Every structure is written in C-alpha cells, then in structure tokens.
Simulated assay, not measured.
Amino acid sequence: MMFAASVQAANEEPTAVRVRHVDPALGSPREAKVLLNRLGDAAMEACGASSFSVAQYRQAVRDSACWRTSMTDVVQRIDNPYLTAAFEGRHVQQALATQGETAGTGR
C-alpha cells in the first residue's frame, strides 16, 4: 500500500510525496513511530523543506499549518490506533481503549 503526504496552496497544484510499502496493519507502537517518522519526512518535503534544510527552517515547516494538515490527513487515512496514538502523543493503551469504546457504540 502507498500513501502520499500532500499539500495544496491557493491557486496551485497539490504537491505529493509518496511513501511506499506502508502496512496499515501496524502491530506495535515501535512500528507506528517508524512509519510516523517516514510520513513526517514526506510531509516536510511536500511543505518545502528537505533533509538538507537548516534546522530552524525545518522546525518552522514542522510548526506550519501545511505540515500539520498533511500529517493529520495521512494519519486519519491510515486509521491505525498505534499510529494515531503516536501522532497525538497519547499512550497506546489509551488509544486502544478509545477505539474499543468507539467500536462498541457503533460510531
């Protein structure tokens, strides 16, 4: 499976950076953190920074609406409790409990 971090500025074509070999059935918090880092790097590139950008610029991009929107979108599309927990900085058990509650209510 492949996902893309993408962004679109007003009056511009969307920019997408593909992350290949994404398994949405992540089985551990560690796997989720590894994928989250890969997705974060892709969003960074889509939003205008690279691994060669200076640290201050990379931080500014990471603090931008572009990066947050890209990451929120791709994490929601993958829809894995471990990935969501890692992205939101929550404890994994809390994420799994929330998912169980949601499943039980039919939401």
Rank of each mutant, 00 (worst) to 15 (best):
N11E: 13
N11I: 09
E12W: 08
P14G: 12
T15L: 12
T15Y: 02
A16I: 05
V17Q: 06
V17Y: 05
R18S: 10
V19T: 11
R20V: 03
R20D: 13
R20E: 13
H21K: 13
V22W: 03
V22K: 06
D23T: 10
L26P: 07
G27L: 04
G27D: 02
G27V: 07
G27S: 10
S28C: 08
S28I: 04
S28H: 04
P29K: 03
P29H: 09
P29G: 14
R30Y: 11
R30C: 05
R30I: 11
R30S: 12
E31I: 04
E31N: 11
E31V: 12
E31P: 02
A32H: 04
A32Q: 08
A32N: 02
A32F: 00
K33L: 06
V34F: 14
V34K: 12
V34E: 14
L35R: 02
L35M: 04
L36E: 06
L36Q: 00
L36D: 07
R38P: 01
R38N: 11
R38H: 10
R38F: 07
R38M: 11
R38A: 12
L39P: 08
L39I: 10
L39C: 07
L39R: 03
L39Q: 07
G40T: 07
G40D: 08
G40H: 03
D41V: 15
A42E: 09
M44I: 03
E45H: 11
E45G: 08
C47N: 08
C47D: 00
C47E: 03
G48M: 06
A49S: 11
S50T: 15
S50K: 07
S51D: 14
F52M: 15
S53L: 13
S53I: 13
S53C: 14
V54G: 06
V54W: 05
V54T: 09
V54C: 01
A55E: 15
A55R: 09
Q56N: 12
Y57C: 06
R58F: 08
R58H: 06
Q59P: 00
A60N: 11
V61T: 13
V61W: 10
D63G: 04
D63E: 15
S64N: 01
R68L: 15
R68M: 14
T69S: 15
T69Y: 05
S70Y: 07
S70Q: 00
M71W: 07
T72V: 14
D73S: 14
D73Y: 09
V74Q: 04
V74E: 02
V74Y: 02
V74A: 00
V75R: 08
Q76A: 14
I78F: 05
D79G: 05
D79Y: 03
N80L: 03
N80E: 03
P81E: 03
P81D: 07
P81A: 12
Y82F: 15
L83F: 02
T84V: 12
A85Q: 01
A85T: 06
A86P: 03
F87C: 01
F87P: 03
E88N: 13
E88L: 14
G89P: 00
R90A: 13
R90M: 13
H91C: 10
V92P: 04
V92L: 06
Q93Y: 10
Q93R: 11
Q93T: 12
Q94T: 14
